[in-house]
Design a binder for these strands. Structure first.
Lengths: 202, 202
DNA sequence: CCTACCGATCGGTAGG
DNA sequence: CCTACCGATCGGTAGG
């Protein structure tokens, strides 16, 4: 019984992720969602309390995955290059194994109810600050040479976050390889001292 | 008289660009738009024929600006590095002088009516191909060293297109400086032979 | 999980 | 550019 409810709830969330990605949150109606799930619109409310709640759960679940993946990644590396590389790979892997939800996370967060929106923006800022610290540590160690750290941070997140737009699960690059390539690209831009030895430069 | 109509129409479009950016296309109602313009909802239809038409005009106007800017930029440069740098600067400048419209262009194109959507995707693909050719020309000239050209193209567009998210008209970087920085970042990632002489590496 | 239904809002038109 | 209005659709509830 509880099993059935959880499964249906998970199905609703997975379907919502896909619809929100394809049509956007506002253009997806609860009737669209019900139809895709195969139940009547009113029946959705036995499993979820509101449309906004679905969006919040998607956005905060992904936020949590990013945080957890980063924490795990940083327990491994030691020097700035490895630490940044591992962080980039971890971030990219989260996107690649949550393609629909990541698209919603990046494009639909502005439709979060006001309170959730504030929490969301705060969490995202804190997360980005951790990457900024990784860059700073590389600068202190004189291994990264960065003239504008905020600009570099923007380039890095732009490179990583666009991954959901083009990654294909059956493509030639694995999520890990993509992360590594992005890391090489970023390390070159950051003029890391060993960028001549990366496989990217071939 | 014609002047008044044109001015009102321009005002409606400018207001729509701003609302579509802030709230998204689907979540912006014609009543929201009318209120922001200061007229009754029905009065909008004296100047525009439909909500979709506003979106189409925004998306295709920006597409045209990107194309025109790229054409102008490529009449200047000669060697691959200058050509790519000029193209990147041109692209970035279009974004920076059309902040609202560029955000709509990047995030709301999926709501275009079907026919316009097909045309839009085709134009965008053609435009991206021109940048791909610039990368290829640099490879033929042995001045860029790229292992995966599609990957590099994605990195480049990700870096450029994210600009609308953080550019501030009164910030310390001008659009041209931003374009130049992105070009240096990209040229490092592409291992251009002169990347050690760029100002970015300081 | 369904039937039946609510008030609010949607894009857009008629007619001036 | 406005008043008046249309049918369609919205998110969600009552009650079973």
């Amino acid at each position: 019984m509880a099993q059935t409810i959880l499964t249906r709830k998970a199905q609703i969330k997975a379907t919502a992720q896909n619809l929100f990605k394809e049509k956007g949150y506002s253009a997806t109606s609860m009737r669209d969602l019900a139809k895709a799930v195969g139940i009547e619109p009113a029946s959705l409310y036995s499993h979820i309390s509101s449309k906004e709640e679905i969006l919040s759960s998607i956005c905060f679940r992904i936020a949590g995955e990013f945080n957890d993946a980063l924490s795990s990644a940083l327990t491994i590396g030691s020097n700035p290059i490895d630490a940044l590389t591992n962080a980039i790979i971890a971030h990219t892997e989260v996107i690649c194994r949550n393609l629909d939800a990541a698209a919603v996370f990046f494009n639909e967060w502005k439709h979060l109810p006001v309170h959730d929106l504030e929490v969301f923006k705060h969490k995202r800022h804190q997360y980005e600050e951790k990457f900024k610290q990784l860059l700073q540590e590389g600068m202190y160690a004189d291994v990264f040479h960065i003239s504008d750290i905020n600009f570099t941070l923007r380039m890095l997140f732009a490179s990583m976050n666009a991954t959901y737009e083009w990654y294909k699960p059956n493509g030639k690059l694995t999520p890990k390889e993509i992360g590594l390539q992005i890391a090489h690209y970023a390390l070159a831009g950051v003029n890391a001292i060993n960028n001549k030895e990366t496989s990217f430069t071939k």
